[in-house]
Structures are given as structure tokens and as C-alpha cells.
Design a protein around this nucleic acid. Structure first.
Lengths: 262, 262
DNA sequence: GGGTGTGAAATTCTTCACAGCC
DNA sequence: GGCTGTGAAGAATTTCACACCC
């Protein structure tokens, strides 16, 4: 069996150990080497993703979201005109940086006036593509079952959960939020058929990478990783991690630096 | 009533609108100006926090956590020696960067050999202060009540939930995981008495900032914000945000960039 | 051979400061 | 007066490449 380690870097861009992906290999690849197929797919993606528009940093995107919630706050309380300073005070970002962030996408304000709150809000929603609907699949819908409000909060962002999957036989066939939970073996096929663009991954950590690989094959370009595992994807596929326990351990570091006397 | 906006920047480092903090002001400050008191506190913190050891970037800390989980994986499967390349493949980070990250804290590897997995794991735990216990308080323990496993996962990181609070009268007095939920009015006092270092904030978004202010006053230096609100704190106090819906909207941006034909 | 640790270069991100506008 | 948008300077972070070690 070929593994990623057997490839030279020039040939195989497969960035992680093949073992992590193996458990599900048989589902879509019977006799040939899995790593090669996935590797090919990875490189093809890489090339097609390259001629993207100018790269906007991850952090900028995060901040744009902050601005958006700040703006919604202003609008709610009836404010019509806001300056970068107003926003900055609310989200703890220097006014200059806000202007720079926005300038990547156009000119939305007017000198000496500031920004029109509603107009800027709408532009931000444009920029974040919140206006056009996205189809996402959810693998391991435990959290979804627990917190029914999530579905609604996702819908607010124009993200529509189109299918549910699980690696746990016990969950398969169950009905959550009016949708049936499918086995992960049908993930690649169904996700592709639905044209899913995004996915939420919430499976046992050791299965996370293999699920992600399946999603990449299905053409999903954005994933939310609720697992404690680190997921590796080819360039062009974005993963964001949300792990309460892990974040806490990061805080641990800062807690410790405080008291050096102890 | 004095507001933050009335201060000049030179005098008042209070970084956000005073209105956000007002609802709870009466609880610990009867007659004098709240913003001034909090501002004073903020500056005193700022000075005392300044002579910290060399600043380690936020991102480095996040990566160290990744390395830690990768190492645990290696150890579990019996690997004794690992190279930066091994780790890098698993977490999608270039080997050079891993070495640079580690070099901030000492020399843990040996040329031509690599790192001893267990040794490095232990050092990482040291660095992240995972060895000494931390006391944290939880404001708005909804999630905690839902997902009992969280308590255990926190304990793994040596974080011990010492007290629960809520802004919702309906929750006060309830018993969760063997602990009573206290009203937020006693938060400052109790947190200080417990010597809490960290906190989890999970309240309605509009109350998040005021709760954070109370925590700052109580000496808490690290917070996990499960709210959709952006929380502003003085330098020296770290906030990490965990918001599933918000992360999704960030993904929205990346979903959209994919298809430019549509 | 392979692997670490680290100066120095390269790149990316943020701040500053000011022209231009109202 | 105040505010935006942006070139240029400044910081920070990442990559490169090589000395050194086994």
C-alpha cells in the first residue's frame, strides 16, 4: 500500500498521513491507491484556486464580521451616520485599520461625513456573500440536535443545512429538525449531488480528517471544524476551528503568565 | 452622567461606550462615576501588565496547542521520536515554523535525532501552563448544563469551574453539575474571593460587555466569549471568541469566492 | 545521510500621517 | 472644525538557508 510518506514532495502534495484517511477509503476507491487519487484532486484544486482575486487576510474577514455586528447595533439604536472611530470604539480596533480593511473592497464613506450605517451594513453583507444562499451539510449533528436555535442562526447567515450525516450507526436514520441522518458512506456522493459548498464537522476527532477528505472530494470549499482534531486541507479549502476546550487551554497560557510569584 | 465619549483620549483609556456597562453599574458603585473607576483600574492593569516576559504571539500559542494534540496522537500510537516534519505534516504547518515556535521557549530537540515525543509533550504542557490548576467561573451555564462532558474536558486542561452565575432570574438557584447558580450581582465579589483567573461568558449578547467589565474588576485575566458580541478589554486581559454562527458567516465569504461565474 | 536552532531576508499586517474633501 | 482613503513607514510574522551536530 502506498502511503503519503512514500511520495516525494515534488509529486505528492498530500499534506497529511494517509493512514488518517484510510478508514473510509474503500467507500469510493476499491483497488487503486487512494492517496494518488486524492493527491491529483488536490493539485487540480490548487491550480484552479490560484487565480483568485487579491488575497484578503483571514483576520480582515474576522474583523469585517465584528464591524457588521457593531453596525447592526448602531442601526438598532437609530444611529444613521457612523465614523470609523465610532465602530472602532465598539469593537476595540483602531479607526485607521477599519478604514484600511474597508478600502480593500471599495470606498463606502464620505470625508467629513463618515459612513451611512445602513449602506455600510449592506455592503459588508455583500462582501461576506451573506446575500446569496449557501448549501451546507452537517456531519455528526449532535450539537444541532441539542441546540435547535442553531438552525435559525445559520439561516440568518443564509446558510441552509441540506443534509445530515453521521459516523455513528446509532444516529443513522434518526430524524433531526425534520431531516434524516444518513450514513457517512453516502457523504461524498450526496454532498456533490446537492452542490454543497460548506460543511460542519462534528465527529470523533480521529475520524475528522477522513471526513474532511471526503468533503474535499465532493467539492466543499469551506468547513467548520467543531472537533478537537486539526484538519489539513489543500489550498483553496478553508477550515475554521471552533473548540471550546481547546480555546480554554490557550487561555491557560495567559492565566499562567499573570502570577509569576507563585 | 459622564460618558466615555466625554473623556479625552489622554485621560480615559476606557475603550468602549459606557452605556454598554451601565446596566450593572449600581451593583458595585452607588454614587460616583463608573467610567472613571473602571478607567483607573484599566490603566493600573495596563502598567502592571507591561513588564511581561517577551511577547509570544497569539498565533504561536494556537499552534503550540496543535502540536500538543499531534504529539498525543503520536504517543498513543507508540511513536517515540518525532521530527518537526512529522508534526508539520499532521497539522499543516511548515517544519521551519514549528522549530521557530519552539525555539522561543528553549531547545527541546537534538540534531539528527528529532524530538522525544513524550518529553516535548511535557514541555508543551509546561509552556501552556497546563500543569498548574486554574480557577474559572462560568457566567450563564447554559451550554454547561447541556453538555455534561465539557466539565471533564475542562478538567483535563486543569481548569476547574469554581462557581456559576447567571443574568437570567430563571436560572438562579438552579443546580448544575452539583453547583448552585448565583446571581450576577455577586459576581465581582465572589470571583475575587475565589481568586478566579479565567471565565466563560455565555449571556445574552447585549450583557456580555458589562459582565466582562465586572470580571476585569475581579482580576480575571482570561475570558472565553461564547457570545456573538465583541468584547473589549484593557491590555493584559485576553479574550478568545467561540461563536459557531459567526464562524459560519466567515466561511460564507470563502464559499462565495469559489464560484465567480454565478 | 537527516535533523535542529537561528541569523537574515522576505513577506504580510498594522500604524502613521497627510492630501483631499465637506 | 472633522473625516475618509491611501502611500509610506514601521512591526510583526513567516520563510529561507546555512552552521552545526549525530
Amino acid at each position: 500500500m502506498e502511503s503519503c510518506k512514500a511520495c516525494t514532495a515534488a509529486v505528492c502534495p498530500f499534506p497529511h498521513d494517509i493512514e488518517m484517511a484510510c478508514p473510509v477509503r474503500a467507500q469510493f476507491e476499491k483497488k487503486r491507491c487512494y492517496s494518488r487519487k486524492l493527491a491529483d484532486y488536490y493539485t487540480s484544486r490548487q491550480q484552479s484556486a490560484a487565480p483568485d482575486d487579491k488575497k484578503i487576510s483571514d483576520r480582515t474577514i474576522t474583523r469585517l464580521r465584528w464591524y457588521l455586528t457593531a453596525l447592526n447595533g448602531f442601526i438598532e439604536q437609530g444611529t444613521v451616520r457612523v465614523s470609523s472611530q465610532d465602530i472602532g470604539r465598539k469593537v476595540g480596533v483602531k479607526p485607521g485599520l477599519i478604514r484600511r480593511d474597508l478600502s480593500h473592497f471599495g470606498e463606502f464613506g464620505r470625508p467629513s461625513i463618515g459612513y451611512d450605517a445602513v449602506f455600510l451594513r449592506d455592503r459588508l453583507q455583500d462582501i461576506l456573500h451573506l446575500d446569496n444562499a449557501k448549501i451546507i451539510v452537517w456531519v455528526g449533528p449532535r450539537r444541532l440536535a441539542e441546540d435547535a436555535s442553531l438552525m435559525g442562526r445559520f439561516a440568518e447567515q443564509n446558510c441552509h443545512v441540506a443534509a445530515l450525516f453521521s459516523t455513528d450507526p446509532e444516529w443513522i436514520g434518526r430524524n433531526i429538525a425534520g431531516m434524516e441522518v444518513h450514513p457517512v458512506s453516502s457523504l461524498s456522493e450526496k454532498a456533490m449531488a446537492l452542490g454543497a459548498q460548506g460543511a460542519v464537522i462534528e465527529v470523533p476527532p480521529e475520524k475528522a480528517q477522513s471526513v474532511a477528505d471526503l468533503l474535499v472530494l465532493a467539492g466543499v470549499t469551506a468547513m467548520l471544524n467543531l472537533t478537537s482534531a486539526v484538519i489539513v486541507t489543500p489550498p483553496g479549502v478553508v477550515v475554521r476551528n471552533v473548540d471550546v476546550a481547546a480555546e480554554l487551554s490557550a487561555l491557560s497560557y495567559y492565566c499562567g503568565t499573570k502570577d509569576k510569584r507563585e
